[in-house]
Every structure is written in C-alpha cells, then in structure tokens.
Simulated assay, not measured.
Amino acid sequence: MTGVSKIGEEYAKSAQHIEAGRQLFQAMNCSGCHSNGGGGMGPPLMKKNWIYGGSVENIASTIVEGRPNGMPTFRGLLPMEQVWEIAAFVKYMADHPTEK
C-alpha cells in the first residue's frame, strides 16, 4: 500500500478510530515489542523515518503482511477495521511523539 487512500485518511483523522486503535494496541500487546511506541525488541514507532513507509496505508500493510526479522502477520487474525484503527493510532504516535 502506498499513497493516501480515502479510508486511511478517514481513520487517521478520526479521534474515535485513533482511540479504538490505542485500545487494540494495548489489547494485542504491541507494546511487548514496541515498548509503548518507544522501541524495544521491535523498532520505535514514534519517529519520522520508516523502513516500509510511515503513511497510515504503509502501517496497515505492515500489520497485515508482517515484516522480516520479527513483525508477525496479522492477516486473518484481525478484521481490516481493526487493522486501520491500529494503523491510525501508530500514525498518531509517530506524528505526536510527546503524547501517548
């Protein structure tokens, strides 16, 4: 996924979707690897430079597809609505690194 999609923009601008993504981020134990966005075993999420792109679409793709060296795929484990919500929250963290 590259570029900006209508659905990606909708989720990334919605406080409701971002909050739902924050709750899912916690529930799915994303902090186990990403340490509340600051990095740990997984890369930090509160940064401007992303290996696979930092758009909400690229983040959603990473969640669905997984990435080499540790990021598992969540394909079939999460409905796409939840993938977009988590991606919106991660994008929010990257754009607002002093807030959580």
Rank of each mutant, 00 (worst) to 15 (best):
E57Q: 14
A94C: 13
A12D: 09
F74H: 14
R75M: 10
R22M: 12
N29K: 13
A20K: 14
I7E: 13
E10D: 10
E81T: 11
S5V: 04
Q16S: 09
G54I: 02
G42C: 05
R67H: 15
I18D: 05
E65Q: 15
T98L: 12
I86D: 01
N58F: 00
A88L: 10
G76M: 11
Q82M: 11
Y92R: 12
N36F: 11
G42I: 03
P44S: 14
E65H: 14
M1R: 10
G32Y: 06
M93Q: 14
I59L: 09
T98I: 10
E65I: 03
P43T: 02
L45H: 01
A87C: 10
M1Q: 06
H34F: 02
V64D: 08
I59R: 00
H17M: 08
Q26T: 15
E57K: 02
K91V: 00
W50L: 05
E85M: 10
G54M: 03
G8T: 05
T2C: 02
K91F: 06
E85R: 09
G8E: 03
G32L: 13
N36C: 00
G53L: 01
M46C: 05
S35H: 06
W50M: 09
M46H: 02
A87H: 02
T73V: 06
A87I: 05
A20Y: 15
T73A: 14
N36T: 02
T62K: 10
G40A: 11
V56T: 14
A60F: 05
E99V: 06
K48L: 09
K47L: 10
P68G: 13
E19G: 07
D95E: 11
E99D: 11
K48G: 07
R75V: 11
G3M: 12
E81A: 11
S55E: 05
P43F: 04
Q26L: 15
Q16M: 07
S61C: 01
A15H: 08
K100W: 14
I86G: 01
L78Q: 15
Y11I: 08
S31G: 10
F25D: 00
G21L: 14
G37S: 04
V64E: 12
H96G: 03
E19L: 14
P68Q: 14
A88K: 05
C33I: 03
M80T: 11
Q26Y: 10
A15N: 12
I86T: 07
A12I: 04
C30D: 01
K91S: 07
C33P: 01
Y52L: 07
F74V: 05
H17G: 02
Q23C: 03
Q23W: 04
K91E: 01
V83T: 15
L45Q: 03
E10G: 08
C30Y: 01
P43G: 12
P97I: 05
A94W: 05
K91H: 06
M71F: 12
G40H: 03
E19P: 04
M93H: 07
W84Q: 04
R75N: 09
V64N: 06
S61F: 03
I51W: 08
T98H: 14
I59K: 00
I18F: 06
P72R: 15
C33V: 06
N69L: 12
E65F: 13
G8S: 07
K48V: 08
T62D: 13
D95I: 06
